[in-house]
Design a protein around this nucleic acid. Sequence first.
RNA 1: GGAGAGGUGGCAGAGUGGUUGAAUGCGCACGAUUCGAAAUCGUGUUUACGUUCAUAGCGUAACGAGGGUUCGAAUCCCUCCCUCUCCGCCA
Length: 428
Amino acid sequence: MLDIRELRRDGEQMVARLARRGVHFDLAAFRALDAERKQADMLSQDLQAQRKQASRDVGELVKSGVAVDEAKSRVAEVQAKIDAQMQAEVDRAAELHGQIEALLMAVPNMPLDDVPEGKDEADNVELRRWGQPRQFDFEVRDHVDVGATLASGELNFDLAAKLSGARFSVMTGSLARLHRALIDFMVDMHADQHGYQEVYVPYLVGPEALRGTGQLPKFEQDLFRIQGDRELYLIPTAEVPVTNLAANEIIDSAKLPLRYVCHTPCFRSEAGAYGRDTRGMIRQHQFEKVELVQLVRPEESASALEALTGHAEVILQALELPYRVVVLCTGDMGFSACKTYDIEVWIPSQNTYREISSCSSFGDFQARRMQARYRPDSGKPELLHTLNGSALAVGRTLVAILENYQNADGSVTVPPVLRSYLGGRETL
RNA sequence: GGAGAGGUGGCAGAGUGGUUGAAUGCGCACGAUUCGAAAUCGUGUUUACGUUCAUAGCGUAACGAGGGUUCGAAUCCCUCCCUCUCCGCCA
């Protein structure tokens, strides 16, 4: 959520920054609404103050020996006059506050100044590449074909469709084990080498948590909501429960920065993505992800984003999978982000790099929504900065391994760092 | 699922209708004392919003959430959420 004070103080500057990502913010409408709100606030608060004083007067009179009924009748006239309009004004002020809140909750974050301006993914800027795409001396098959014919396990979409329809997958045997091994490998790396605390969280969350990170109110169609009395949603990413650990908290400064690593399944309805990546397990309704989340002091968020992205890259380097890092342009960034790096892994069958991680800084945008604060060494509590990144998307990592490590005989070589997780197995 | 007890400030813990945004203790901050420190003493220390040049004053709201009763609610009533204890069930 945008800072309403900054909006009042320097609205033009914020409008200009939003315009960089193609968002038009109607400052005049906001100001008109805010002016109305201001008037309603002053009037309603003044009436409440009068009402309060009248009640106190009754108390004073009773204390000084006046009978209760007598005291009440002495102030009754004043109160009647106030009551005639107070509730209406209080309601009006609350209504206007609600309108402003709703307006601001629907506005995306402002890109940082160093984010390149652009319209869509075509305008993203490549920053670096790592590794050399392998030259194959046989016909490259995609992960669907490779996974369907492995001797030691299989990747099966028909079985999944029988159970749950399109965009789900079933894995068996060594493939299922490789999938599980990837999770352990990634979590171990971040917990043991990169200083993240492992955390386990609920996969169902309430609407407040989703508002906090920015999925609600605007993107409900991308979520799965469960049946039942309570309003609960399947998490679309561990970002939601993990970041919200700090919601409505005031974190002791000495505990910062907080770094969490969390593996969860992720559930996305992908309502707007029909027809995209329909083959294979690139885009599923359910997938596993290892997520990094950091909660940091504002001055640390820029360097934290670089470090976090590096932690995700280390996984790909260890797996010896070629990748590149791009910085998303203003028009391609997510709703809550102020800067995002995508890491894209080489997919031989598509002869291109595909997103396998997205690492973002959110500034205080999410923290303001969820009131995640810390107590500085001196002064009042301040909003934290939040960051997160996939490190990595497990299903897509599996895809990359099946494709990059495939052999002419249909087998798949196990990346050396994973072999200890597979009982020493060298090929699938 | 059944029965009972609770949810108050960073923490602990008072407070059952009237200057209580809230005693007290701990913690923390500043000051005094000291060569320095401990101990001691003093002062201060919730948050949001509004107003404002102001993180100064002043105002409004908030004691799990939302309603209600009342001139007046942390205190009384209702609903929901959560925590704890016992029983049942279960991984």
